[in-house]
Write a protein that binds this DNA or RNA. Structure first.
Ligand code: FES
Ligand code: FES
Lengths: 144, 144
DNA sequence: CCAAAACAGGATAATTTTGTCCTGTTTAAA
DNA sequence: TTTAAACAGGACAAAATTATCCTGTTTTGG
């Protein structure tokens, strides 16, 4: 569904948010360990998220990654996915035709577009904060 | 969503069915042309579908690919996807955790599993014949 | 100032996916 | 019987994705 890079990015962002909620920064080293992701590669993904304005990085001793309260309330999962995998997942034809077009639909168009739209709606309706609260309360997990 | 290989396989299968409906076989060459897919690679994908019992191949002059009436009625899109991409798409965790488990869910589990299940239901409820009739009648397309 | 923590980013490598090429076998028609 | 159409399958190549390594810069505390 999502690329590995995107999965790492989402997991990292959720972890960062749970720390930011309690006023802490979290280092790449900790992110990689707590989300069971490859460190250097996750670092690259985080660079994309910083450029995309999803999270903030702070260099130097006691640096790390953080995300503001407002940001975690307003940023949608769809934005993380778009920042890493692009918009294609929201627009592409299920059978790989060069464009999805209701005027010249592929045989799966109606059924596929419906589900693709549900996915889009779900991702647009889910904030980082939504995903972080369950983790903070120990109800959800980022490993196993 | 689906791999390229899977997209080619689905398009090929639908095309084969529309020809089988009118009692014709279709060659790999024609499949590649009419579905705008790379010939040799599509050939590999078709080998998988033959092994998977989705379509039948006939060698020699006047050979090609075909699919029986009963097969096209009974075979579900989910089976093509499973034959090429595997069952992972129906089971995998949206955030890439090693397994999706409601007892130890990732933060996205509830929302993701719901959509993944809708996708599964859709693919299981769609037969090759369903997809082929619109194409035969010129209402749907396999290119552009 | 200096050392260490921590991110940035370029280069490179490994793996997977996608795609091509070539040779062999089967089969029907001429 | 010969020929050509057509699939099967192994070997190889290209491209994309995933992953690692190394060097540089920033920053803070001692
Ligand atoms: S044209 Fe294929 S999903 Fe819309
Ligand atoms: S645990 Fe992640 S989708 Fe079920």
């Amino acid at each position: 569904m999502f690329s590995r890079a995107c999965e790492y990015g989402i997991r990292a962002t959720i972890l960062i948010a749970t720390h930011s909620i309690v006023g802490e920064r979290v280092s790449l080293k900790d992110i990689a360990r707590k989300t069971d992701s490859p460190l250097a590669f996750t670092g690259k993904v985080l660079q994309q998220l910083v450029k995309g304005g999803i999270v903030t990085s702070v260099q130097g001793v006691n640096g790390g990654f953080e995300i503001g309260r407002k940001q975690m309330e307003e940023t949608r999962l769809s934005q993380i996915v778009a920042a890493i995998d692009g918009e294609q997942i929201f627009r592409a034809c299920g059978l790989g035709l060069q464009e999805c077009n209701a005027k010249k639909p592929c045989p799966l168009h109606d059924k596929f577009a419906s589900i693709r739209n549900d996915l889009k709606t779900m991702l647009e309706g889910t904030s980082i904060l939504d995903l972080s609260t369950g983790l903070k309360d120990g109800l959800t997990f980022l490993q196993r």
